[in-house]
Design a protein around this nucleic acid. Structure first.
Lengths: 348, 348
DNA sequence: CTCGTCGTTGAAAGCGCTTACATGCCTGAT
DNA sequence: ATCAGGCATGTAAGCGCTTTCAACGACGAG
């Protein structure tokens, strides 16, 4: 079964152009000197023969794939997409391709090592860091902790969580719940730490985290439990905006008021869709996280030593109305508090 | 600059294991017969040396990359992500990797041919079909039309658009506007066709399309124009849910009622976030679209001839409340009896 | 007229793997 | 004891490219 390619190789091109394969390679890679005449003939032959070089052969010869791998757990919601876009964009600028591997439910062992054999370096999402193994390739872990010797990039978590939690406590909320699976990702655990610390600093005791996944439906479930009285709280610190938004929507639907009955805050600020009240959240530089990861991989492949300390990107607390703060006047609340997907009106 | 890999090759492994490279290859590929003893020794050597095979060398030898390419314009919103996930998942099941290329603003010519040199086949998103060129690799175009000889997969558009439009017309809406850039993607053009036909079938004349892009902010702009009186309509057929939702939100924010003042319907049904009123939309099998694309690529690479006719996947009209229909009662609207935190509902 | 230079080109040696094909060994049948 | 046959393994020929190094022709200087 002869498959990829049309059988046209650098040899066919060379023959057709009446030059050697070395010359063909030179014009194609734009390396070395080539006479104008030879160049034109080669280009012509390439055109006529529909020549598509074999990336594999080139990679083998230069011993480099010019491709970086990216391992993500999934792609639901804007967070991962944003990360991926940041990564792909920067990789593209560096002239590198990207191979994507999605965690899903499947066993990652084989897919991961296959990936490793096809790329020069790999960016692994925090929660999946366990899959790294003794990867021979340079690796950077993004949004999470890494084993010693492996570089890690992450957004600040503990302090932001502390600040966010304290903000809620300062609002007089006393029964705060942390919504997110602390075992799923190191990031979430760190946020819970900040959550706990903020409580302790005020001589309070933080409740155990409510373990849920990142997606919207998981938020719904929490809302239902709240409504059912299974859970009680006057403030919810959610692991991401999707969950926060879902909870808010469900709660509001059921007639509860956010933030009057319960404050809800999230994380990421990647939901371009805004709601009323605006969601107070921690803005993370997600795109930048991905771009930086690609950058670091590039340097590691270039021979740079891995950084010993985690690269922590700053985050920003974005106060809107869902925490109980007075929302900015140019975002009027409706008389019938109801949740909509929307964007703040234009500031004029 | 020696980069990827740790210098361990199949030769090192063979030497360490005391066998020939052929045997090493056999156990690694699990092909041919190998004695239990040899297998164990090879595996051991692999482990000890941290051997990572060179994908490039393998690809060159077998003359196949075992990788498919995917060219998408961007990754905003759930549509592309869903497509990507469908594609990646199926490719993974087929034991193939995926290389992703995002259109972005950059010039695709070089990135595309680089991609072509690294994969066995490419899936191209409809709007980007122009980039195909005379690609030597098998190609399938997804969500759009393809040049002759190139296979295409798409969701049904014309009929669904007809049905959706007619539904609005049947509601007595007479001043319908089609919101979407008909020049951006073949899919959108087809939907506008259905829109036009539905009008003609009732002896009406369809308005010119309102050209906007797919994203939320583009929807906002349309809403603003509507509010400013720059545009007038009692029904909006939007090219996707994001735009529809954004319009709805902005309009509602400004005090207009959907659907009473203006009906708004969308496309895709990929917004998991629900709003009130529920968005009437056309559900597309996006995940399946991606999966099918991967499947087809696989067959094409396997030597199957490209299908001459477009593969059209059925869609489904999902009626909710935004078109003016009475909404289904499976989720209580705000005016319904409400549940409070302090009062657990009777069930259970 | 000879020689050194420069600009251009080609020959050839890998890169690390797969895979016929050949080889050698052991077994059971003769 | 001999030999066919099967199993396990090794040998070696590529796969299509990059890149070093040598060679070549033309040309100006000595």
């Amino acid at each position: 079964m002869r498959v990829s390619g049309n059988g046209v190789t650098i040899y066919s091109v060379a023959e057709r152009a009446g030059v050697s394969i070395a010359t063909v390679s030179r014009v194609l890679q734009d390396s070395g000197v080539v006479s104008e005449r030879a160049r034109r003939q080669v280009l012509e032959a390439v055109e006529e023969l529909d020549y598509v070089p074999s990336g594999a052969a080139r990679s083998l010869a230069v011993r480099q794939h010019d491709t970086y791998g990216l391992l993500l757990p999934e792609l639901s919601g804007p967070y991962y997409s944003e990360l991926l876009v940041g990564f792909e964009t920067r990789a593209g600028e560096l002239g590198r391709g990207v191979m994507l591997l999605l965690g899903g439910a499947r066993d990652l062992a084989k897919p991961f090592s296959t990936l490793a054999s096809r790329v020069d370096a790999i960016c692994v999402f925090g929660g999946l860091a366990a899959h790294i193994g003794r990867s021979t390739r340079p690796v950077v872990v993004v949004a999470g902790g890494a084993p010693p010797g492996v570089e890690a990039i992450t957004a600040e978590n503990v302090d932001s969580a502390h600040e966010l939690t304290d903000h809620l406590l300062a609002h007089g909320r006393t029964r705060l719940l942390f919504v997110g699976d602390t075992t799923a990702a190191p990031d979430v655990l760190e946020r819970y730490e900040g959550f706990t610390q903020a409580h302790e600093d005020r001589g309070l005791r933080a409740a155990e985290p409510v373990h849920v996944e990142f997606r919207e439906r998981d938020g719904i479930v929490v809302a239902e439990r709240l409504l059912a009285g299974d859970l009680a709280a006057d403030g919810l610190v959610c692991c991401n905006d999707e969950v926060a938004l879902a909870i808010m929507a469900r709660l509001t639907d059921a007639g509860m008021d956010v933030p009057d009955d319960v404050a809800v805050v999230g994380w990421d600020d990647v939901m371009t869709a805004r709601v009323r009240p605006g969601l107070t959240t921690v803005r993370q530089p997600v795109h930048q996280l991905g771009a930086l990861a690609a950058d670091r991989l590039h340097e590691l492949v270039g021979g740079a030593p891995p950084r010993a300390t985690r690269h922590v990107l700053p985050t920003e607390l974005v106060i809107r109305g869902s925490c109980g703060c007075e929302e900015h006047a140019d975002r009027p609340r409706r008389s019938h508090p109801q949740t909509y997907l929307s964007t703040p009106p234009p500031r004029k």
